[in-house]
Design a protein around this nucleic acid. Sequence first.
RNA 1: GCCCGCGUGGUGUAGCCCGGUCAGCAUGGCGGCCUGUCGAGCCGCAGAUCCCGGGUUCAAAUCCCGGCGCGGGCGCCA
Length: 416
Amino acid sequence: MKLRGWVNSKRELGGIVFIEILPENSLGLVTVVVKKKESPQAWEVAKGVKLGSAILVEGTYPPISLSKRGREFKADKLEVISTPRAPLPVDLTLKTGIHFDTRLRYRYLLLRTKEERALFKIRANVLKIAREFLEKKGFLEVNTPKICGAGAEGGATVFELEYFGRTAYLAQSPQLYKQMLMTGLTKVYEITPYFRAEKHHTTRHLNESWAIDLEMGFIKGMEDVMEVLEELVCHIIEGVRKECEEEIEILGVEIDSPRRPFARLKYDKVLEILNEEGIHIEWGEDLGDAEERALGKVMKNEGYNLYFITHYPWKTKPFYIMKEDGLSRSFDLDYKGLEISSGGQREHRYEELIKNIREKGLNPKDFEFYLEAFKYGMPPHGGWAVGVERLLMKMLNIDNIRETILFPRDIQRLIP
RNA sequence: GCCCGCGUGGUGUAGCCCGGUCAGCAUGGCGGCCUGUCGAGCCGCAGAUCCCGGGUUCAAAUCCCGGCGCGGGCGCCA
């Protein structure tokens, strides 16, 4: 048998050497045992092996493993594939502490620990499960441009860049494009990064984040898309529970099955609930982080980790959301007090859409390429986007969103 | 943008309040001993212009000012 991995720790006792590795993509620690008497050549190599080396071990798993940490592996041959040219900047046995910043800086080295590896395996699984689910439901995966000619839809600030002498912007969302596709397809989704140029300093914002974005045509109302969202989120959570048992155990978290159907609270009702909690919000105001957290507590007591907040005042929502009596056909999905998704039914009627754009103080001229698509038989449609990092942080009880993405982009971090 | 906190060998920290030893400890590194370690142990060695700049002082890691870096809160955030 052959094992490949990196040396995380080594203990030398005269004629016997113990080397701990986390083989390749596995989560199971292995203690390689090399004895002088039994394999003198391997012992010679083992003695000189440096922490952090990439090694190839040939040997067997003995019937009895005496090691307390990791399954024992008896080495017959040991080869150093790559020797570090400097001591490791971090302690991969995690005995010595590590600053958050250092951890992010050496993310790639931390992937040699089972904790960090488990996290990113779960992340990969979330996307895999989502893809499988949506494919099965008949959604088509699409890819829309991330370099865009039109500016903001209002709201979040966009990053500007120079594009052959013209100004271009990094996509703040695939929203407009996926809507345009509704004239030719009825069920699409995209797994994509978003770019937002906001200077926030919080544990729940990134300047580059990923989302699962979906849009559906010929809907009767927003409930149609809410159902898909609820199903997807449950599928992901249950899927992770089932497929990532080992990862979950390593991270030491408990992931609860969501109570279904998710609660559906109207904005007005949320204001009432908050009022009872002593938090007073003016009607028409959006919910802030403190309010969302307070609501999360209340809902938790009701047995809901996940719940929809619907019918926000239209003024808090973007122009493409359908208006109804001053309210909007929109919803947010909150997970443990944090918004992980928002969506709604879109305005598909050309004239109404133009009115909406004007009402938001935007110029319809700037949206011609988009509006054009609404001239030729645009069906009623709606959709949503789920923030991958936020879903992960709430599912795994992670405090800082930066932990959930390999190389986070925030106001100070552009490298690595 | 505003506010709070932190910055000491590669890594993680003590010392800072109340200025005055070769800046202590752990881990990692190097060398040595050890055939069951597993936070291995034991002996020895090396490793820090105490984030940067300025100021106060006989004397600054320590006090003051400015800057930079990082964490967080508020704001911002379809």
